[in-house]
């Protein structure tokens, strides 16, 4: 079976600054891959390339059968297959939780009102926020907003979920409630690529860990490399993280 996400020799520069210097990796169906590394190592850039929020200079990216590096890619199809959640939630402030969640299903997938509402109820139950369906984002805590953002992505029934440091803006207690949701998704077999600074969390749920360093994969392997790192760079990185 072909992988859900595949990077082959991906290069990307911002101006004269090379950020990805020949990145290659794959994410198989049902796999949970944690992307870790120091600030500026290119983790977010790599993640954004998956959903074509950034275009690459060289190399090939294939996601759910879509050739992302192809300039003529049908973005609307790619983005229905990919869910992405950012550190800053990015809920639409003028819409209720239900409207946030059902916006794309209704307009992109042409779901009718009743089935869209049922869908909203379903994904909100998944993130444990059923009672907030009529709330506005500003009435929710950061952790709740982030869970709604996850629910909003799930409502498109993506084949892969991308998470970029989704708990970095949250205090420890709120972090825990968001991580629980992600862990439950992992348990249900969702394919996930997640950038995280939560080493303990990565060590708990990741099937595989990719340690990025200066735009390249420096070390990769099972979650065990977090406890027994091989390279000095990863050693010093987890030394501070775990």
């Amino acid at each position: 079976m072909s992988p859900i996400v595949s990077f082959r020799d991906v290069h990307k520069s911002f101006g004269a600054v090379p950020v990805l210097k020949g990145l290659s990796f794959e994410v198989q169906k049902g796999e949970v891959v944690a992307l870790i590394g120091r600030s500026g190592s290119g983790k977010s850039t790599a993640l954004r390339c998956v959903d074509r929020l950034e275009t690459v200079d060289k190399g090939e990216i294939i996601v759910c059968g879509h050739r992302v590096s192809d300039p003529k890619i049908e973005l609307r199809k790619l983005r229905q297959d990919v869910g992405i959640v950012f550190q800053s939630y990015n809920l639409f402030p003028h819409l209720t939780v239900e409207q946030n969640i059902t916006l794309a299903p209704r307009w992109v997938k042409k779901a009718d009102k009743a089935s869209a509402r049922a869908l909203a109820q379903e994904v909100l139950a998944q993130v444990g926020l059923s009672e907030k369906i009529d709330a506005y984002p500003e009435q929710l805590s950061g952790g709740q907003q982030q869970r709604v953002a996850i629910a909003r992505s799930l409502a498109m029934r993506p084949q892969v979920m991308l998470f970029d440091e989704v708990t970095s803006a949250l205090d420890p207690q709120l972090t825990e409630e968001v991580l629980k949701v992600i862990e439950e998704l992992a348990r249900q077999g969702m394919t996930m690529l997640l950038v995280t600074h939560e080493m303990a969390f990565a060590a708990r749920i990741a099937d595989r860990v990719i340690f990025m360093h200066e735009g390249l994969i420096h070390e990769t392997g099972s979650r065990d490399i977090l406890r027994n790192p091989n390279t000095p760079e990863l050693k010093s990185f987890v030394g501070v993280g775990l």
Binding site: L53, R76, R79, V82, N90, F92, L103, A104, W107, V108
Partner: peptide, 8 residues
């Protein structure tokens, strides 16, 4: 960007 990511 959030709107883009939702395939709008």
């Amino acid at each position: 960007e959030a709107a883009d990511c939702l395939a709008l």
